[in-house]
Design a binder for these strands. Structure first.
Lengths: 136, 136
DNA sequence: ATTGGTGCAAATCCTTTGCAATAGC
DNA sequence: GCTATTGCAAAGGATTTGCACCAAT
């Protein structure tokens, strides 16, 4: 299902801001801060404000099209394509994808048993990225 | 090893702020925001500033005595005692402990292979806490 | 006596909010 | 034309920084 349809289906308006921000997220592939998203779409949308980026990212997250990745200092966003895990550098805050198969069914089941309604689950590995490890 | 020794060993000063903040973290057991930590130690340390709390928490995290838990909106801190997982409510930001056995060796090994130097790893389940789920 | 820590104040950064203008329906 | 979205401006909250005083060594 494509974003335009999804928006129309919910009676929301299809704007170039929404389409372009979603595309930027999808094409970049990485974990972007709101500011990076702004800079990415600015050429195509001269004058977009950071606030529009924020509200659009929140909307995309609500729609399930984007995913919020909590990071030290700032929230980052990624396209909600495939599920993967994250390595977070404790020194510089960089986030990298981690591809590993981890069985999480037990975790989500335990969460559900605790009264929690799970939406998604993932592994976060904290440590030092290669660059910061080399520098110390 | 106790905090006083740890500090002395590194040539750092043993202050009541450091000892009491660490104790508050350990005795409370939960995931505290810097502000909550401040309010907890304020009775015993009249006039402590939020800045002292911040720098002390950063120090404790560096020493490995406390652990930073990245949460939406604000960073939280917990005593670095036992390793457990977290459920994070996407609506209200609450964090709860999740007790489940999840094999993470594969994840840390994959991280190491990617040049990352893992420090700790844990599962984060995103979703709605019982209270927020009931309210919607 | 030294100097690392703390308190105090102000600055900075990220994010949200209020309102008028604009653009999608 | 109606109203959700955007842009603009400002506020708010979390965290950091700079500097002078105090206290641990």
């Amino acid at each position: 299902m494509d974003l335009s349809e999804l928006l129309r289906e919910r009676g929301m308006r299809v704007t170039s801001q929404r389409l372009l921000i979603e595309r930027a997220l999808r094409e970049h592939g990485g974990h972007l801060t709101a500011e990076q998203v702004h800079d990415l779409v600015e050429p195509a949308l001269p004058g977009v404000t950071q606030q529009t980026v924020y509200s659009t990212l929140a909307l995309l997250a609500d729609l399930g099209v984007a995913r919020r990745v909590v990071a030290p200092g700032t929230t980052r966003f990624e396209a909600a394509a495939d599920s993967h895990h994250h390595m977070v550098c404790e020194r510089c805050g960089a986030i990298e994808d981690l591809h590993a198969r981890v069985p999480l069914a037990a975790a989500t089941r335990a969460a559900r048993e605790a009264g929690f309604v799970p939406d998604s689950a993932g592994v976060t590995v904290l440590g030092l990225c290669a660059r910061c490890a080399a520098a110390s």
